[in-house]
């Protein structure tokens, strides 16, 4: 028969775990709201930026123009930016990104391409170091101490562009989680360099219409593009980081919610066993007393 004391101890320990997970869930929910707000606020900038790029890129002869747009003309080496969270306990959030990145790495390596990695977030580094430690060229950590600022994205973007200018890679991909809801995050692969110009057709709102209008350019198309493209990389990194942080908190909230529920179930089950055992002890003692009395 299980020991009553042991059961009591277990119940208490599960109870305190439940308290922690439910607190973490609450914190994640609050942070999620803030992260969503931040992502929402950053949208106008990204939208206008995209509109400008579309307008400008439409006027550039394919194959010419700045390298950030047209590429190096080769397709041999890749730099993959893997963005995860710094902390765990958020379900499959980190592993999903890393898994997608790993698959891509294998695929590229099988095709005979050169791959380098830049990790954002501690988990990406920890998980990728085991299998691909030689490929990691740089790691960025401690992003989400507070909210993500544009400066952090800018730093990463500068690093990317610097390496691109040095000819370290031809294509830059980024892996992150796009936020859909607190329950679902979509692992997204995005090409940062050369810049992917979104299709104009299908965009029927005001932005799409005015993009077709004739613009005057100051200083000239090339000049603006070469200033705009690096900014665009930074903006895309920024958007990705914001989405990622919203996803992280969403994933953590969901994970902690189910952890809290599981803990509740466990407590119920343990309490039942505890009560049953207690009664069994009482019954046993009674039987002992009664049979003792009868023996007299």
């Amino acid at each position: 028969m299980p020991n009553l004391k042991d059961l009591k101890v277990r119940i208490n320990s599960v109870k305190s775990t439940q308290k922690i997970t439910s607190a973490m869930k609450m914190v994640a929910a609050a942070k999620l709201r803030r992260a969503q707000d931040a992502a929402e606020q950053a949208r106008p900038y990204a939208k206008s930026m995209e509109r400008m790029i579309v307008t400008l890129a439409g006027n550039v002869v394919p194959g010419s123009g700045p390298k950030l747009l047209s590429g190096t003309g080769k397709d041999e080496s890749y730099l993959i930016v893997v963005a995860t969270a710094d902390r765990g306990l958020c379900g499959g959030f980190n592993s999903n990104i890393v898994r997608a990145a790993r698959r891509k790495i294998t695929e590229l390596e099988n095709a005979g391409k050169k791959v380098a990695l830049l990790t954002v977030g501690r988990k990406a580094k920890d998980q990728l170091r085991r299998t691909h430690s030689k490929l990691i060229v740089k790691s960025v950590e401690n992003l989400a101490r507070t909210t993500i600022g544009f400066e952090q994205a800018d730093t990463i973007a500068r690093e990317l562009i610097h390496r691109f200018d040095e000819g370290e890679f031809d294509t830059c991909l980024m892996f992150y989680n796009r936020f859909q809801s607190a329950m679902t995050q979509i692992v997204t692969e995005q090409q940062l360099i050369p810049a992917k110009v979104p299709e104009l057709s299908g965009d029927e709102d005001k932005g799409g219409a005015s993009a077709k209008a004739l613009y005057e350019y100051e200083p000239d198309e090339e000049g603006i593009l070469s200033a705009l493209l690096p900014r665009n990389v930074a903006t895309q990194v920024f958007t990705a980081l914001l989405e990622n942080s919203a996803s992280e908190h969403g994933a953590r909230m969901t994970a902690m919610d189910s952890a809290t529920r599981n803990a509740g179930e466990m407590i119920d089950k343990l309490t039942l066993t505890y009560n049953r055992t207690r009664q069994a002890y009482i019954t046993k003692e009674l039987i002992e007393i009664i049979s003792g009395a009868e023996a007299l």
Partner: peptide, 9 residues
Amino acid sequence: FELVSPERL
């Protein structure tokens, strides 16, 4: 007129 910074409108 709209003035937007990367972080917000």
